[in-house]
């Protein structure tokens, strides 16, 4: 047996891969298949499904109300991704350009928030953002800087703030990884050829960091689109994202097939958005 293994490296590879493959099949593929199948079935009275084929759930997804929520969720996810990119890129650049001895400490500092549960950190923001008893408004009012509390909570601003805060590190890390590997001699060469530093950045640094930017954007965009805790807590439950609608279908309306249909359409929309994004960044990579 061992002899055969040694002679067939291909078999070795399969054995090593078997565990993650089986894991993914059971815990990733199978649920997807279930969601897909459920999307075409009729609802049970109080949850569950009746094994009767229907296209009604798919049709209901395009109800203007839910469609509007899709658009809104995309808007919030896109703004969140842009803001994290604008904040995260300089931060990643700064860390990558720090002396090597300090870099690890900085990356480590970036990871510290992950030690605390996201839900708890989101609740912590509440103590800052509350309208009448939040630290920010109370301080500004006491100092006489404002005479009416700022609307910091229960709106899109709070939702985007919470998402940006939560996902900033996952934007920074891939960009940092790309920038850290950047060969300094390329920049020197650019300068030798009389490129201004702005031009050197645009023609050398940016294109070479693009894979990190793409990876970071995806890591931020996808969970932001599906977010449902942040809108419920920081948004005061006063607005819905698609994640809230889906969870309400399973819990409030006991309508599993419609919840499945919404999830499926969301996944497909996400896939299309991702493909367009990849295509677009690939093109801009080719141009530069």
């Amino acid at each position: 047996m061992t002899e055969r293994l040694r002679r067939h490296p291909e078999l070795q590879a399969w054995l090593i891969l078997a565990i993650p493959v089986i894991f993914l099949l059971i815990f990733f593929m199978a649920p997807l298949v279930i969601v897909f199948v459920y999307s075409f079935l009729e609802r049970g009275k109080y949850g569950g499904v009746e094994w009767v084929f229907t296209l009604d759930n798919i049709r209901r997804v395009f109800d203007p109300l839910y469609f509007k929520t899709f658009v809104r969720s995309f808007y919030i996810a896109i703004v969140t991704t842009l803001v994290t990119l604008i904040l995260g890129y300089p931060l990643a650049y700064f860390i990558a350009k720090s002396p090597p001895s300090r870099r690890n400490a900085l990356v480590f500092a970036l990871m510290i928030p992950f030690w605390t549960n996201f839900l708890i950190r989101t609740y912590a923001w509440l103590t800052l953002l509350r309208t009448h008893t939040g630290l920010i408004n109370v301080t500004l009012m006491n100092w006489g800087i404002i005479d009416k509390p700022l609307p910091l909570y229960g709106n899109d601003f709070a939702i985007i703030l919470g998402l940006v805060y939560g996902w900033l590190p996952v934007m920074v890390l891939p960009i940092y990884a790309a920038l850290e590997r950047l060969d300094e001699s390329l920049l020197e060469a650019a300068r030798d050829l009389y490129a201004s530093s702005a031009k050197a950045f645009r023609r050398v640094t940016w294109p070479l960091s693009l894979p990190g930017v793409v990876a970071g954007s995806m890591l931020v965009f996808i969970p932001s689109l599906g977010a449902f805790v942040t809108p419920a807590i920081l948004g005061g439950g006063k607005s819905l994202m698609i994640g809230n609608i889906i969870s309400n279908q399973f819990l409030g309306a006991h309508d599993w097939p419609f919840g499945s249909a919404l999830s499926m359409v969301m996944m497909i929309a996400m896939l299309i958005a991702t493909l367009i994004y990849f295509r677009w960044t690939k093109k801009s990579e080719d141009v530069t």
Binding site: R43, K45, Y46, L65, Y66, K68, T69, R72, G237, K238, S239, L240, N244, I245, N248, Q249, G252, A253, H254, D255, F258
Partner: peptide
């Protein structure tokens, strides 16, 4: 009291309330 499949009607109206600006 439980309303069976009619709960979907409540849920949709509730979604409308929650997503109204």
């Amino acid at each position: 009291k439980p309303l069976g499949e009619f709960e979907s009607v409540y849920q949709r109206m509730w979604d409308e309330v929650k997503s109204a600006q």
